[in-house]
Nucleic acid binder design. Structure first.
Lengths: 259, 259
DNA sequence: AGTATCGGTTCATTATTTGAACCATTGGTT
DNA sequence: AACCAATGGTTCAAATAATGAACCGATACT
């Protein structure tokens, strides 16, 4: 691992639950030498990727990432395009919708929309890591990812998030086959209890899966009829999003399913 | 300059006008050795900061920056807070508004809002570099920045963007004094001809200037009365934004100006 | 007074980065 | 078809930068 990768890997320790990290904590988290962490953080700070909080001297993400994200969006406007699609989809279904993107081997939630229709909603955060086997989005991605990638995920230990999480690799492979048939993944309470979510894959220009579009609703609200409606709406929205970002579904993706 | 800074400095060559860069171009732009650039870009790619376009092999910003930006916003929600302020301000003034933030020694536009009131509007891009001496935002920042910083900017060569750009450091110092008095900066056609813009500084938690909030309008539309209205609205909006992001104006900032 | 944190610093040792030169391909010119 | 000038990518000895154990001063708690 080069020095640059090491420095950038430090950025991965910042999450919603841990937005600021002190030098000693970061040293422990990363397992690197304190002097090394200190110097790397200094360089990240010079470049604006990191800044130090005013009170204590703990580190947090800096303003430079905003500039880069704005440029990325200008070049590849996935998020801005997705916002419209998410909004329309949440209005159509009356439920919370969200988009997640594959970043390296990690699936991250990146954008979401709520519907005002119901008082109870599934709440979402952006930049959260999604479980592959526990979420509909994760299953949708696995079903259409390269087989080696899916196998790597499935052969690693699969944590049990709730009582309903499916953790048997064999059972999941069966699920994935069904998803490949229908084009829509489903998960009931696999990550958070009482959350019923549906998801479809989103494809990039080379017809490879780049993420997933999902609808998440309180489980008690979802009848079979509603599930079918959501699935149909998702398939349409997924195809729209894939097309608008200049992507293309692979030939084997069930294009005409559910009118 | 450490290896990490070198790698990150490569990211700075990506702009709106140049969203994709090939290896050879990047080598020329950066002045580094080709092998060095190649290896650094490889590391940035592994971390998801860079990805390679499908067709040719040129580089562009990767999806990882989106995740970091979402986390930064969760920790320090300047952009999301500013969007409301910008929207209200553009509705109130009927003109285009934008927020720019100081990143290192560079001032970048990062968020904007349009008003539907007029058919002709000043158009904005996010993640564009703003001139200090040619824009109202730049002047607002200079007026309230550390004196050494302002002097560094003013003693460097000041490019003439339009026929109306003020490029004499002495004249600019006089302007800055006036801005410190009124709290509002103004520039007519200093960066783009026919654009009349007003701007106020935005302050961080340590009462240091972190950016500027601006209103930009076609010069022909701005009468003295309208300029006064815009200035008043800007002062109010600037104070709101500074407060909402947990910032504080310095004691010498004209707080009560224009009720 | 003692001790266990914390952020930050030092400097000889070590390992990584560097760059000139080299390949293989592609696309345009003669 | 031969040539030239690009491109992205690769090699390896030499130069440089990264590393880590130990140390410092400050703060807070026992």
């Amino acid at each position: 691992m080069g020095t640059v990768s090491k420095a950038l890997s430090l950025l991965a320790y910042f999450t919603h639950g841990r937005p600021e990290i002190g030098l000693s904590d970061l040293t422990r988290l990363s397992g690197m030498n304190k002097a090394t962490v200190y110097r790397l953080m200094g360089e990240l700070q010079e470049s604006g990727f990191i800044e130090q909080a005013d009170g204590d001297r703990s580190y947090r993400l800096g303003p430079e990432v905003l500039r880069l994200a704005a440029l990325r969006e200008a070049a590849v406007p996935i998020l801005s395009v997705s916002r419209r699609v998410l909004k329309d989809l949440s209005e159509e279904t009356g439920e919370t919708t969200h988009l997640s993107l594959l970043q390296g081997s990690q699936l991250n939630s990146l954008s979401h929309a709520y519907s005002p229709r119901h008082a109870t909603r599934v709440m979402m955060d952006d930049a959260e890591v999604l479980s592959y086997h526990g979420t509909a989005s994760g299953l949708a991605v696995l079903a259409f990812a390269e087989p080696e990638f899916s196998e790597t995920i499935l052969t690693a230990p699969l944590p049990r998030h709730t009582a309903d999480t499916v953790t048997d690799p064999g059972a999941i492979r069966t699920l994935l086959d069904a998803i490949r048939q229908s084009g829509v993944a489903q998960s009931v309470g696999g990550f958070e209890a009482e959350v019923h979510s549906h998801a479809v894959p989103v494809f990039g220009p080379d017809a490879r899966v780049i993420g997933a579009l999902a609808v998440a609703a309180p489980a008690s609200r979802i009848s079979d009829a509603q599930a079918a409606e959501i699935a149909a709406a998702l398939l349409r929205a997924g195809q729209t999003l894939t097309r608008r970002i200049g992507g293309a579904a692979p030939a084997h993706y069930p294009q005409q399913a559910a009118a």
